[in-house]
Simulated assay, not measured.
Amino acid sequence: MFLNRIIYGIEFFVRLVVEIIKAVIDTAMCCLKGEVDPVVVEIMPDLKRPVSLAILSNTITLTPGTITVNMDQEKGILTVSALTPRSREDIIPLESTIKKMLE
């Protein structure tokens, strides 16, 4: 069990770096093209533990183009601001990895 969490932790770190690089390129292209259309969305991830929500919230804020505005731990809702309209999967691509790592 502990070894699995370490492996998922390594997977999480690698995927986070890849997602940050992809977000840097995407955000730069949107800004250069002038295709900025800010939106605020509420997302209800499938995570139970407060630490999982906090880590997901921080990963959203670390990736360029998105920021977590509010986190309601009781309801499990994240309010996210994004530079352009995006799908739920584009905003929280690391949810499954965090779930495997911590839940």
Rank of each mutant, 00 (worst) to 15 (best):
A28D: 01
A28G: 12
A28I: 10
M29S: 07
C31M: 14
C31L: 13
L32I: 12
L32C: 10
G34F: 11
G34A: 13
G34R: 12
G34E: 12
G34H: 13
E35W: 05
V36T: 13
V36R: 11
V36H: 12
V36C: 14
D37I: 07
D37V: 09
D37C: 09
V39T: 11
V39K: 14
V40Q: 10
V40G: 03
V40I: 15
V41C: 05
V41Q: 05
E42P: 01
E42R: 13
I43G: 04
I43P: 01
P45G: 09
P45E: 08
D46Y: 02
L47G: 00
L47D: 00
L47R: 01
L47W: 02
K48R: 15
K48I: 13
R49S: 13
R49I: 09
P50A: 09
V51K: 06
V51H: 04
S52F: 08
L53H: 06
L53R: 00
L53G: 00
L53Q: 00
A54G: 03
I55K: 01
I55F: 09
L56Y: 08
S57T: 10
S57K: 06
N58W: 08
T59A: 07
T59R: 00
T59S: 13
T59Y: 01
T59Q: 07
I60F: 08
I60A: 03
T61Q: 09
T61D: 08
T61C: 09
T61M: 10
L62K: 01
L62A: 06
T63Y: 02
P64N: 15
G65N: 09
T66S: 15
T66A: 11
T66R: 05
T66P: 05
